[in-house]
Simulated assay, not measured.
Amino acid sequence: MDGKKPYVMAVVIQVIYTGLYVVSKAAFDQGMNTFVFIFYRQAAATLLLLPLAIILERRNAPPMSLRLFTKLFMYALLGNTISMNVYNISLKYTSATVGSATSNSVPVVTFFLAVLLRLEVIRLRTLSGMAKAAGVALCLGGVLVIALYAGPAISPLNHHRAFTNEAASRGGGGGGRTRWVKGTFLMLLSNTAWSLWIVLQASLLKEYPNKLLATLLQCALSTLQSLLLAAAVVRADAAAWRLRLDAGLLAVAYTGFVVTGVSFYLQAWCIEKKGPVFLAMSNPLCFVLTIFCSSFFLGEIVHLGSILGGILLVAGLYSVLWGKSKEHNMQLTLAAAATVQVKQQQDDSADNKMDIAADEDEKQQKLASPEQQV
């Protein structure tokens, strides 16, 4: 049973993220302001993480300098405030299916940014290098297909949906093709900002190694940033800030506590047990689940273009992951060969020393033999 636990947890994670796309889309379709939503989501996440940090890490807090605080502020602005707000606007323009499909581009975009920052290398003359380059191209192709090609519509599975709103049934966020195209590219922009944040976290955690406190501080800073941004956009509209017993309140509670609290822990556990590639390999399951759930609960009309684009994005994801896996295995093989070679050289050196010592003993015996004969 222990061997199956990572697979079960991976499925649970994808189910949680399916709920994220569906519930968030339902909240926006029912009129919840996207900027206010992010403020409440980040505030809920901060309230969840704060007691955990106090209980578990109050004695392990690394020293905080002005330079480090500024870096945390900028990373929170990029990876939380900007990325999430742009993503929610794009989700309002498109559909839950598109949100789930484009999430498969995150590992590919992260790899591409790592190449630009010279943290990764593409060797086009190798099979793994060609696979990684093909993955980037497939990812871009998938985004273009989703944005520019609608195709035939697939009728919703359930016409009596749980979250009723006419915008959802149009499959384009209720704003026509221009809004759909804009939303798709905004979603890619959001994923790019998130991917850049992922790349930058590696250097941040070397400087500030406490993961829980780093996450808490970025959530708290993002809450303040989101509050100021929402206040600037919404201004005096008090109704936009009011939470009701509807999909908006459900979305805030779900994203703040379940996504941030439960899924983040499960992801860390899966990565520790099986590595990041294993978790990324399960992402397409969320895409399939979201197609069915958005159609059933939201009544979304899924277009063929969204499915084809999602398939290209999944293919791009697997191509990059396969190339990285192939390259990693090659590095392990070379390292093992180098270790064997070093060991062989050490053994040869030890044998040579033993031979030299034996020769010296033999010479000593020959020199000593005439005296013994006398």
Rank of each mutant, 00 (worst) to 15 (best):
M1V: 13
K5F: 05
P6A: 07
Y7S: 02
V12C: 03
V12P: 00
V12H: 04
V15F: 07
G19L: 02
L20T: 09
Q30N: 02
F37S: 03
Y40T: 00
L52D: 09
A53C: 10
A53P: 07
I54Q: 01
I55P: 07
A61W: 12
A61G: 09
P62K: 08
P62G: 05
P63C: 01
S65R: 02
L68N: 09
F69T: 07
F69N: 15
L72W: 09
F73D: 06
T81N: 10
N85Y: 12
Y87L: 04
L91A: 11
S95Q: 13
V98H: 10
A101I: 08
N104V: 05
S105C: 07
P107N: 08
L116M: 15
I122N: 04
A134F: 12
A134V: 14
G135A: 00
L138T: 07
L138G: 00
A150I: 05
G151L: 05
I154Y: 03
P156I: 01
L157R: 00
H159W: 09
H159T: 01
H160P: 00
H160E: 11
R161F: 07
A162G: 06
F163T: 05
T178N: 13
V181Y: 04
G183Q: 02
S190M: 13
S190D: 12
S190E: 08
W194H: 05
S195W: 10
L200Q: 13
L200P: 03
Q201G: 10
A202M: 10
L205S: 07
N210D: 11
K211F: 14
L213G: 00
L216Y: 04
Q218C: 04
A220N: 02
S222P: 04
S222T: 01
T223K: 03
L224T: 07
L227R: 00
L228N: 08
A232N: 06
R235N: 04
A239P: 08
L245C: 15
D246E: 08
V252M: 02
T255K: 05
G256D: 03
V258Y: 04
S263E: 01
S263H: 06
F264S: 15
Q267D: 13
K274C: 12
L279T: 14
A280P: 06
S282V: 01
N283R: 06
N283Q: 15
N283E: 07
P284N: 12
L289I: 03
C293H: 14
S295H: 03
F297G: 11
G299L: 06
L304G: 09
I307M: 04
I307R: 01
G309L: 14
L313F: 09
Y318I: 11
Y318G: 04
Y318C: 06
V320W: 00
L321H: 02
G323D: 05
N329R: 06
T333W: 15
L334H: 10
A336Q: 14
A338E: 12
Q341R: 14
Q341G: 08
V342P: 07
K343I: 12
K343D: 14
D348W: 06
D348Y: 10
A350Y: 13
A350K: 15
D351V: 09
I356N: 15
A357H: 13
Q364C: 07
A368F: 03
Q373W: 13
